[in-house]
Amino acid sequence: MVNTTNLLEVRGLFKKYKTFTLKDVSFDVPKGYITGFIGPNGAGKTTSIKAILGIISAEAGTVKMFGKEHSNVLNTGIGVVMDSPMYVDDWTVSDVEKAIAPFYGNWDSGKYAGYINQFGLDKKKKVKDLSRGMKMKLQIATALSHDAQLLILDEPTSGLDPVARDEICDILREFVSDENRSAFFSTHITSDLEKTADYIIFILEGKIVYSGSKDELIEKYARAAGSISDISSEHKKLIIGYRGHSTGFEGMVETANIRKLPKSVLTEDISLEEIIIFMNREGKESE
């Protein structure tokens, strides 16, 4: 049965490179929400996105978009915003429309002009003369002008100043205010996701380590710190990303395991950024 509550369903994506493997990547992007795709640099975020879009071919796995097996034809229903725009440097903002619009039957020139105006872009300005933030906005304007149902963004806020990042986050929030739309947003800047994302998919070394609601992820773990002498080797096994130093230790613990730790160990709320750091550290130590 087709699950129409998910705009994107990825199952068992596998892709092997000489130095990196995407292993059994599976997740859903539900309708009406912003889903954040997090992980450190080189974790497999861009590779996963490229495999989903058909830019690279996965060796195994399936992608369902809008309830149907993915084929390139379905890409007309999505808006893509990549790390750097895939436009010719010498194109003006108007040229981008001339080049891209013919591919979309439902392209709305009025909408494009509206977004260009809203984002403060100059129609005559060349792509190469736009700032990074403006380039991102140009891609978003293009993605929104053909009534895309699903926005897929790869590191759209990376390298942007806080004001520009906040503007992009606002655009995404406005986009999903229509409950039939979704945004799937990869980043390693977790503060943007803390503000905007409803769901989180966490990828580490090519493998999905968490897929679920953002709040559940943050509630699932707690930051733990204390004196090294307070914990035994059994306790240490419960600490994820354990790091000892001269004044004590720090790490992350599953909230379900807090009771198993001595009361002298301090536990407190954890941020998404810390979760990434501790999980990454744990992954490297277990290698």
Binding site: L53, M82, M86, F103
Partner: peptide, 18 residues
Amino acid sequence: AVSEKAGLDSLYPTLSLS
């Protein structure tokens, strides 16, 4: 030359081109 420089080969699949 232009396709390579601008990364248009990655753009084509997003435009539903096989």
